[in-house]
C-alpha cells in the first residue's frame, strides 16, 4: 500500500526496488491534502468576496458568486465607521498601542524570571515555578468578579485609564506564566558553565544576566514577543470586560464584534471587511515570522 513504499524510501535499506513501480499513494495523498486545503480556505474566499460586494449582490442565490460590481464601499464604512457603527481604523491604532508595550514588558519580566528559575536557582525555586505556571492554566472566569472590582479601584485610586491602559496591565500580569515558561525552557539549554565562568570572574547576578544571558536571548525574545503580540491582539475576554466603549476606548476585537452584531441583518460586507482589517496585523506576523510563531506554539504546549 501507499504507506509501505514511502517508509521503504525513507529507510532505504530494506532492499525493495521502489523506483520502478509507480507509487499511487503520492498523488492520492496529494489530492486529499488539496481537498482539505480548499476546505480550510473557504472562509477566506467568503471574507474576501463578500467584503467587495455591493447592495445589489445581496440575494441569497448569489451568495457564493463573485461580485457583479466590485466596490470598496464596505471597506470604507468599516474603516471610517458609519452612523451607528464604530470605526475600525482608530481601534486598530488603540490595539497597537496596547499590544506593543504589553508584549515588551511581559517579555522582560519573563526573561528575568526564566533566568533565575533556570540558572540562578534558590531553595524551593521549583515550587515557585510551579506556582507561577499555575496562573497559565486557570480559566480567567475564576478571577473575573474580584478582578473587576480590583481594576475599578485601580482606575479610581491609581488613575489607571479605562480601556487600553487597564488592558496593558492585565496582559502583562497574566502573560507572566507563559513568558517565564518559554524563557526558562530556553535558558535550561544554556550551559551552566557559561554562567559559572561569569560567576568565577566575579560578576554578580545582574551583571551576568545583562552581559552573558541577555545577548544570547534574542531568539527567545522573538518567540515570546510574537506570542504575546498575537494573544493580546486576538484577546476578546479581557477586552469585553475591561475595554470600555467600543467606539472610543476598546481594542479592535470589541469594535469588530460590535460591528458584526450590529450589521447582522443589513449587510455582512462591512463586518467582513472589518474582520479582514482586524486580522491583518497578526496574519502579517504569521506570514513573515511563521517559524517563530510555531516555536511559541510548541513551547507553550509541551512543558518541561
Amino acid at each position: 500500500m501507499a504507506v509501505d513504499t514511502s517508509i521503504t524510501q525513507r529507510s532505504g535499506d530494506t532492499g525493495r526496488i521502489v523506483g520502478k513501480r509507480f507509487d499511487w499513494g503520492r498523488p492520492v495523498r496529494f489530492i486529499i491534502l488539496l481537498f482539505f486545503l480548499i476546505v480550510v480556505l473557504i472562509p477566506v474566499y467568503v471574507l474576501l468576496v463578500t467584503s467587495f460586494k455591493g447592495i445589489g449582490d445581496a440575494q441569497a442565490v448569489r451568495a457564493w458568486d463573485l461580485p457583479q460590481v466590485w466596490t470598496l464601499e464596505n471597506w470604507k464604512s468599516a474603516w471610517q465607521g458609519t452612523p451607528g457603527l464604530p470605526a475600525v481604523a482608530p481601534a486598530l491604532a488603540r490595539t497597537a498601542l496596547m499590544v506593543v508595550p504589553a508584549a515588551i514588558i511581559s517579555s522582560f519580566l519573563g526573561s528575568m524570571n526564566g533566568f533565575v528559575l533556570a540558572r540562578w536557582r534558590f531553595p524551593y525555586s521549583n515550587i515557585v515555578f510551579t506556582l507561577l505556571l499555575f496562573g497559565m492554566f486557570i480559566p480567567y472566569q475564576a478571577v473575573m468578579v474580584p478582578l473587576y472590582r480590583l481594576v475599578l479601584s485601580m482606575q479610581t485610586t491609581l488613575h489607571l485609564g479605562v480601556g487600553i491602559p487597564s488592558l496593558i496591565v492585565l496582559h502583562v500580569i497574566y502573560g507572566i506564566p507563559i513568558t517565564t515558561l518559554i524563557f526558562r525552557n530556553y535558558y535550561e539549554s544554556v550551559p551552566q558553565e557559561l554562567i559559572e565562568a561569569s560567576r568565577v570572574d566575579g560578576a554578580g547576578m545582574l551583571r551576568t544576566y545583562a552581559w552573558v544571558v541577555l545577548p544570547i536571548s534574542i531568539p527567545s525574545f522573538v518567540v515570546v514577543l510574537i506570542w504575546q503580540f498575537t494573544s493580546a491582539w486576538n484577546d476578546y475576554l479581557f477586552a469585553v470586560y475591561f475595554g470600555g466603549n467600543a467606539a472610543s476606548q476598546a481594542p479592535v476585537t470589541v469594535t469588530l464584534n460590535t460591528i458584526a452584531q450590529g450589521s447582522m441583518l443589513a449587510n455582512y460586507g462591512a463586518a467582513m471587511a472589518g474582520a479582514l482589517l482586524a486580522s491583518l496585523p497578526t496574519l502579517i506576523v504569521y506570514i513573515f515570522l511563521g517559524k517563530y510563531f510555531v516555536g511559541g506554539l510548541m513551547s507553550g504546549s509541551v512543558k518541561g
Partner: peptide, 28 residues
Amino acid sequence: KRARFEGVFRSVFLFPMAVSSVAAGVVW
C-alpha cells in the same frame, strides 16, 4: 510522507490559529 509543497499545506492548515475568534466568528 514527504508530500510535495509540504510547507504550503502546513502554513495554510495552521493559519486559522493566527486569526482571532471574533474575526473567525464574523465569517462563520
